[in-house]
Amino acid sequence: MNKYFTAFIILVLSFFYIFFSNDSGGGRVFVNLLTFAGIYGLAAIGINVHFGWTGLLNFGHAAFMGIGAYTTVLLIPHSLGREGVVISTGLPLPLAIILGLIASALLGLLLGLPTLRLRGDYLAIVTIAAAEIFRLLVRDFEDLTGGVYGIIQFSDSLQNSRPDFITQFSENYNISSAQLWVGLLTWFSIVFVLIILARLKKSPWGRALRAVREDEDAVRALGKNAVLLKLQSFMLGAAIGGLSGIFLVFNYGTVQASTFVPVLTFYVWAALILGGVGSLGGPALGAVIFWVIIAGTDTISRFLFESPDGQQLAGVRFVIVGLLIMFCMIFKPSGILGDKEELLLDVK
């Protein structure tokens, strides 16, 4: 129980930090942070299925998140591109989301088929390349995706479903009601996804994934189709990534080519490693702590530079993300909630 206690202490301290480092609008900052943390946490849960459960190195999560988001947004009423062409008809949001998740899973299938037969590090290169291809195509095919101008005015489909009491509550506490709604839905999704994953983890399927992670050849020798298991894992994690991508764009209210850049994937990885690879709740916890740290980096920037500009803020932020990934992997590879017995050190 010790590690859960540690996690609890860290969370409490984080929240104190948030409230006391923001003299005005603590609630607003808090909701903003929790929403982003939820979205990144959900994305990290997806990578955890890949890496923590199955040992698959996915460094192209931004593409899975992106294709889910673009598919969903393009299927609902929206306004597109530099001229802001209004498309006022579309599918009901739940259906669009389901199709978005399917699109993410299909991209997983498409990438997995050629690469899951190869050794692990090839997958890392291919997924990162696929994410870059995705970004370049989104950027270039402006007619379809709006390119750098992106897509706007699609949020209503989601925000129309916002209950009145949330709007009321937000007004009382000076919080963005739209963001609160996205944040709540995100955390509900996390709970829902984790319930399903908890069930799968101790099922024969989950056990088979772990066996694949440990030794594929032995899995094959026992008459099990390792490639099929890896494909399923890849598709499931991709779909979870897609869901997080959908929430991400609803949180921004817009989506453009720069929304799903490769560094997004690395952020999510940092959250995962911090929280604990392989554990169920670790990724979500890691994402919260990650965002608290990100918020903290701005304080460090102000300490280092008199009046930091955007470049310095981003620089300090990412220097710390990089250090975080390295130090966690080297000194605490099990993260906060990870199982010591499940250390991933010696994975080949």
Partner: peptide, 13 residues
């Protein structure tokens, strides 16, 4: 794989 993740952190840093 652990080393690969470390190089990613190093690269960002």
């Amino acid at each position: 794989i652990a080393v690969l993740v470390v190089t990613i952190g190093l690269s960002i840093f």
